[in-house]
């Protein structure tokens, strides 16, 4: 079963707001009014609908104009076989969103539960605070297979963000808590203004100037993450040591950046 399937009828001429199209949607979905540019359109005008809602929503062939896919999702699964636009999973509280392409800015913004997996890249401010909000993502998990734009994890309050590729300027800016892991290269000024929370990085280059080197340590916590964290376990397999940078010390922050050591069996 694939649940409800949306197939675009053609190229979109304006941005499409899919915030009210969820796996739990009921009623006459063909007539469902959605934002289309400055106007509104019926879902059936823009997409061919097939299947039936059963907790799963599939979007065949996405597009960078598809904004707010999965916004407010609390349960069920959304699979997008293509790209999405801005605010993917905005304020999501549960359920799973899988994007097989790339996502735009503000993906996972203010996420508080559930999981988002993006196979490609994401735009700026992944998991960050949205317009007018003080705090970013506070729970849940985001895994990005590609790279992230500027300020990924800005004002992150909780949850786990894993970026398999690079992170542009300002990753983890003003982080409040939570975990942001960047396996590729860091852009400049990572962790600037960080209050608490953990950055896992592969090298210290790019960390903001306010980080102080606390030396390399054998951390039991890494062993726990290797066994308990479904998303991060693979980062720590065979790794028990990390170099700890504390910061951002310029604001009295108690956050940390842990630079993972090479996979070795050394201890002590």
């Amino acid at each position: 079963m694939t649940g409800l399937v949306l197939t675009p009828r053609g190229e979109f001429e304006a941005r499409v707001d899919l915030s009210c199209v969820l796996p739990s949607a009921e009623g006459d979905l063909e007539k469902l009014k959605i934002g289309y540019g400055a106007a509104r359109a019926e879902l059936g005008e823009l997409f061919e609908l097939s299947g039936a809602p059963d907790g799963r929503l599939t979007i065949e062939g996405g597009g960078a104009q598809l904004d707010r896919v999965g916004a407010g999702l609390s349960s069920g699964e959304i699979v997008v076989k293509g790209d999405v636009g801005a605010q993917l999973g905005l304020r999501q509280t549960g359920g799973v969103i899988v994007v097989k392409g790339s996502a735009g800015d503000y993906a996972a913004s203010e996420l508080s539960g559930g999981k988002i997996a993006v196979a490609g890249d994401v735009g700026a401010r992944l998991g960050a605070a949205g317009d007018g909000a003080k705090r970013g993502m506070s729970g849940g998990v985001v895994v990005v297979g590609g790279s992230a734009g500027a300020r990924a994890g800005e004002r992150l309050r909780g949850g786990v963000v894993l970026i398999e590729g690079d992170a542009a300027e300002g990753a983890g800016t003003s982080m409040i808590a939570g975990t942001l892991a960047v396996m590729g290269k860091l852009g400049r000024n990572a962790g600037r203004g960080m209050k608490r929370g953990t950055l896992f990085v592969s090298a210290p280059e790019g960390l903001a100037a306010g980080f102080g080197d606390a030396g390399e340590h054998d951390l039991v916590m890494l062993r726990v993450l290797a066994r308990r964290s479904h998303e991060l376990a693979h980062l720590f397999a065979g790794r028990t040591r990390a170099r700890r940078f504390a910061g951002d010390l310029t604001i009295g922050g108690k956050g940390e950046a842990l630079v993972l050591a090479n996979k070795v069996s050394a201890s002590g």
Binding site: G158, V220, M221, V224, R228, S229
Partner: peptide, 22 residues
């Protein structure tokens, strides 16, 4: 002290002279 939420369970790291108590 540092708290981490790992797969729904809260876990603590408490700095001690020897290293960290988890």
């Amino acid at each position: 002290q540092i708290a981490k939420n790992v797969d729904g369970k809260r876990i603590w790291r408490i700095p001690v002279m020897e290293g960290e108590f988890v």
